[in-house]
Simulated scan of single mutants.
Amino acid sequence: MTLTIWVDDWQMQCCGESFAPGDVVSWTLLEVDPEDYADIVGGERADEIDFREEHHGQGEGHTPTSVEVVSIVEVHCRYGVPPGATDKANYPVPGTTVLVPVKAADGWAKARPDVGFAGYLVTARRASDEPEDAAIPIRR
């Protein structure tokens, strides 16, 4: 069984460790609402996201899960102030997603025209050295 895991750019840049396909990583996986990622990755890809990786405060009390990285895709999108917004904060602009398969992730990505790096979509599977009854969180 494969999982799709969202890894934020800022989490990796802050204190994440590089990874590549074939690597076994130990991550705290938190359930997500795919709708939260629709503007960043598009609705269809958002529906594939099972978990997000968290290694800051929100992951407290969750047991890390060992997974083997299968593939990595950089996610880039344009950011802008939505029409009619009063707070002038930038948000992902729907329909501007650029997906780039990569051989490794270190939190930094090559600049692309008109879009900013947002994070990674990581396909992974439970690590073979985990006991058979090891719990991968169940998506509700």
Rank of each mutant, 00 (worst) to 15 (best):
C15W: 05
E74M: 03
P21E: 03
R126I: 12
G57R: 02
M12T: 03
Q13D: 01
T4S: 02
G80E: 13
E132A: 10
A135P: 05
M12W: 02
L99H: 15
P34N: 09
I40S: 15
I49F: 02
T2W: 03
D129G: 09
P83A: 13
D8E: 08
V98A: 06
H56C: 15
V7P: 09
V115L: 02
R125G: 11
Y79I: 01
A85N: 06
T63H: 14
P83R: 15
G22T: 13
R126C: 08
M12E: 12
E132H: 15
I72H: 00
L121W: 04
P34W: 10
A109F: 14
E48A: 02
T28S: 09
G61D: 05
T2R: 03
D87I: 03
G57C: 10
K103N: 10
E17Q: 03
V100R: 13
T97D: 05
R126K: 11
A46L: 11
E60W: 07
T86H: 07
G107V: 15
D114F: 09
G42F: 11
G107M: 03
P92W: 07
Q11N: 09
D129L: 04
E17N: 10
G84R: 06
F19N: 07
L30M: 14
D39N: 06
D106C: 08
E74N: 14
P82V: 07
K110G: 06
C77N: 04
P34H: 11
R139T: 12
V67L: 08
E60G: 05
E74Y: 11
K103Q: 07
A135Q: 08
R112I: 12
P137N: 04
G42Y: 11
G95T: 04
D47F: 00
A118S: 08
G80T: 14
R52G: 00
L121D: 03
V25M: 08
I138D: 15
G116M: 01
E54Y: 02
Y120R: 10
I138S: 11
I72A: 04
W108E: 06
I72T: 03
D114Y: 15
T123N: 06
A134I: 05
F51Y: 11
D23C: 01
A38Q: 13
R140A: 07
V67Q: 01
V70S: 03
D133R: 09
D87M: 10
E132R: 15
V24F: 00
V69E: 00
P92Y: 00
I138L: 06
G95K: 14
G116N: 07
V93H: 01
Q13K: 09
V100F: 11
L99T: 10
V73E: 13
G59Y: 03
T97M: 15
T63E: 07
T97S: 09
V98W: 14
V41A: 09
T28W: 00
G43C: 01
P83I: 04
E44I: 00
R140W: 04
L3E: 01
I40M: 10
A134W: 14
S71D: 12
W10Y: 10
A105I: 08
P64D: 12
L121N: 11
R52K: 13
E74G: 00
A46I: 10
Q11H: 14
I40K: 01
D114W: 07
V73A: 04
E48Q: 07
V102C: 11
T28V: 14
A111M: 06
